[in-house]
Design a protein around this nucleic acid. Structure first.
Length: 418
RNA sequence: GGAGACUUCGCCUAGUCUGGUCUAUGGCGCCGCACUGCUAAUGCGGUUGGGGUCUUACAGCCCCUCCCGGGUUCGAAUCCCGGAGUCUCCGCCA
């Protein structure tokens, strides 16, 4: 949710951001108009209300004719007040709608353009030289690690079982991520994966992502697509102490309908309806958000280094940012079977955009409440198994286990096909 | 699934039966001041949050806020209806 004070003081900043995203600048003018209409309506209502209260106060003291006259006037007035109140409420709704139509202000320095216009910040690690690489599914099936056939039998397409060493590898990976997060002061969290509509709404996932989200009709609950949702909503309607950033690491299953992705990435576990993830989530002061963002990115890269996988970091272009993000960095791991990089982490700086909607604030030095900034970043997911298996494969179909993961697979250095 | 109790300005709490004097009581905590050679203790004052308006800013003024949403009424913390949450008991299932 965009800041109305900023809108009033510097609408051109928002226009510029809209341009960078390739969004309509007219939305800014719509919002300006809605804001003015709302304020006018509020003032009308408040003036009438003040008069009504004034008269009401005289009631107990009044007697006889005086009382009858007062009654008649206030009766009339209360009808006007009711109408004015309804008008103000309607204007406020229109204002919210216009406000939600505008995505977050893009951070200065984000590359302009759309999906293809990302900037590669760096490539890290050497791509392995593997002639005729097997893909992760072939490797995983040979190792008895992944079973997509039975996944489909039991739950449908885009579902899978992680079996044997596959299950161990994932648990190890996520534990490794959790351990790293804890080492850096994150509070580990296992959140609910079913949330109320307001939590889904507050985090912005019922907007553009609405068709991606599973909904449980009978209970009016949503399955989260990321623990970002419960972690962000954790402090909704609260006033925090943010002398230093407050950081959480959430471990959860994530659920996605993948509605718009028919025929895309259908093989293996690259794009699935359910996966597990450790997600970093930070609340901090807005002036701290930029630095915090870079810290989250650094922690993601540290995790990627631990699993010894080559990757690159991209600076996502303005037009490809989510509505809440002011800036986004993705880490993409090298996938030998595809001969290209695929996204394995994503970290967004949402500045105050998400927190304003969730009403998450802090007190500054002067004791005033201010809107907090929120940021999120991926620390590990099921998808990481793909580059891990593929980059560490050997010609005989066995897979070397990165040192950091060996304790989780019984100390084995190599996983052999069954 | 059934029955009941509860939800008040950071925390605890009075007020709800009997609508207006609630511009919400008191305690704790916190902040400021005074006093005491320090600390402690004591005294005095302040302390919900959001919005509008005005302003360089502060202050001021106004509206909203007693879990949420409706309703009754000239007027609702208080009465009525619906919902959420917490707790207790019963039932059911482990």
């Amino acid at each position: 949710m965009i800041d109305l004070r900023l809108l009033r003081e510097d609408p051109d900043a928002i226009r510029a951001s809209q341009r960078a995203r390739g969004e309509a600048e007219s939305a800014v003018d719509d919002l300006l108009r809605a804001d003015e209409e709302w304020r006018a309506a509020v003032q009308r209502f408040e003036a009438l209300r003040a008069e009504q209260k004034q008269l009401g106060k005289q009631m107990p003291k009044a007697t006889g004719d005086e009382k009858a006259a007062l009654l008649a006037r206030t009766r009339e007035l209360s009808a006007e007040v009711k109408a004015a109140e309804a008008a103000a409420a309607e204007a406020e709704q229109a204002l919210r709608r216009a406000q939600l139509a505008i995505p977050n202000l893009v951070e200065e320095g984000a590359p302009p353009g759309g999906e293809e216009d990302f900037v590669v910040l760096r490539e890290v690690g050497d791509k392995p030289d593997i002639p005729n690489p097997r893909d992760h599914l072939e490797l995983g099936e040979a190792l008895g690690a992944i079973d997509v056939e039975r996944g489909a039998k039991v739950a449908g397409s885009r579902f899978y079982f992680l079996t044997g060493v596959g299950a161990l590898l994932q648990l190890g990976l996520l534990q490794l991520a959790m351990a790293q997060a804890v080492e850096y002061g994150f509070i580990p969290m296992i959140p609910p994966v079913l949330v109320k509509p307001e939590s889904m709404e507050g985090t912005g996932f019922l907007g553009a992502h609405a068709s991606e989200v599973y909904r449980l009709e009978a209970d009016d609950l949503y399955l989260v697509g990321t623990s970002e949702v419960p972690l962000a909503a954790f402090h909704s309607n609260e006033i925090l102490t943010l002398d230093t950033p407050v950081r959480y690491a959430g471990w959860s299953s994530c659920f996605r309908r993948e509605a718009g992705s028919y025929g895309k990435d259908v093989r293996g576990i690259l794009r699935v309806h359910q996966f597990d993830k450790v997600e970093m989530f930070a609340f901090c002061r807005p002036e701290e958000a930029h630095d915090e963002h870079l810290r989250l990115l650094a922690w993601e890269e540290e995790m990627l280094a631990k699993v010894e996988v080559p990757y690159r970091v991209i600076d996502v272009a303005a037009g490809d940012l989510g509505a809440s993000a002011a800036r986004k960095y993705d880490c993409e791991a090298w996938v030998p079977s595809q001969g290209r990089y695929r996204e394995v982490t994503s970290t967004s700086n949402c500045t105050t955009f998400q927190a304003r909607r969730l009403n998450i604030r802090y007190r500054d030095e002067s004791g005033r409440t201010q809107v907090a900034a929120t940021l999120n970043g991926t620390l590990a997911t099921t998808r990481w198994l793909i580059p891990i298996l593929e980059n560490h494969q050997r010609p005989d179909g066995s897979v070397r286990v990165p040192k950091a993961l060996q304790p989780y697979v019984g100390g084995r250095e190599v996983l052999e096909p069954r």
